[in-house]
Design a binder for these strands. Structure first.
Lengths: 164, 164
DNA sequence: CCGATGTCAGTGAGACTGAAATCT
DNA sequence: CAGATTTCAGTCCCACTGACATCG
């Protein structure tokens, strides 16, 4: 992300607070990225494969559905699943309702490993939220949702822009 | 990122609020990612090159410094700069203090284009923050920083874990 | 001479496209 | 037979490694 400068110089305490917040957000994203990078290394897989595991952690799926969610072609999806299956993190099984399709699911080993990696983070993260009152959490939620909508709207604006 | 399920079922209103917040954070990250993806397409470059533009937007730099910040090899950095220079978004210039080194900077065209892409987002984003009081912003800042430290600590824990 | 900076050549991983096989 | 799902073969983009020239 490109962070425009000079939108508001921190001339007041309020502006300084806003500036700190704007600086803290990319740091947070980098920290999230660092966890993912470390986890991918620990599992011996690449980031795309890790994102696939993240989706499968919500429940079994099909190669087509996974490819769409990961923004991958079906050909690329096949190789992702080849790698995950060879490493023992995912399993291809028959779809009970459609004999053309497959049912992809995590192995027990993957579930155990994922729990060991992210479980402690989730536990401590819940502790951090406990330090805040309901009103503060609601404020965070409102801002997050508003900012999400804002960015999606502008992503569409940029995507619809004619290329120069 | 993999989001562990079942850490706490939303049995109370408080738990539901926490669950909403935990769900909103990855959505926000996806939205940020969508903006970056759209911007990269609009500029006709890849995501790595875009991150390089983001760094250069803070001011001129050198290939070595950029490579370190982007976690790239110097060889890869050369090709990134080749692409950005060919596209007219960045310029190689001599470093006035060191004749081995280069001074990389954005072109005026890049500055204009970046302003047109991110300027409106920054303006509206500032408006969103204006809707919140200082206490709320401080609460967000504290949570962001605590959560960042938490993730960096666990990233290190995972990285230091012996590989099975 | 040693260390640092940037570039070039060759290699490998990963994603894409398009054709083929299987099944509804 | 038309359409959907998955796989395979070939190609391309991008990052890495290692060697080299230049300079402090």
């Amino acid at each position: 992300m490109v962070y425009p400068r000079g939108v508001s110089r921190p001339s007041s305490p309020r502006d300084a607070l806003v500036a700190d917040l704007l600086a803290a957000m990319p740091r947070f994203q980098e920290a999230t990225d660092a966890v993912d990078e470390a986890a991918a290394r620990a599992l011996g897989i690449n980031r795309t494969d890790l994102r696939c595991l993240g989706l499968l952690d919500h429940g079994p799926s099909s190669p087509s559905a996974l490819a769409e969610q990961l923004q991958l072609s079906r050909g690329a999806m096949t190789t992702v699943l080849d790698r995950l299956e060879a490493a023992g993190w995912a399993r291809r099984g028959p779809d009970p309702d459609d004999r053309r399709a497959l049912r992809i699911e995590l192995t027990d080993a993957a579930r155990t490993r994922i729990g060991a990696l992210w479980g402690p983070i989730a536990m401590e993260g819940a502790g951090l939220l406990d330090e805040h009152g309901d009103a503060e959490l609601r404020a965070m939620l409102r801002f997050l949702r508003d900012a999400t909508a804002l960015q999606l709207r502008h992503a569409k604006r940029i995507a619809d822009e004619p290329l120069p």
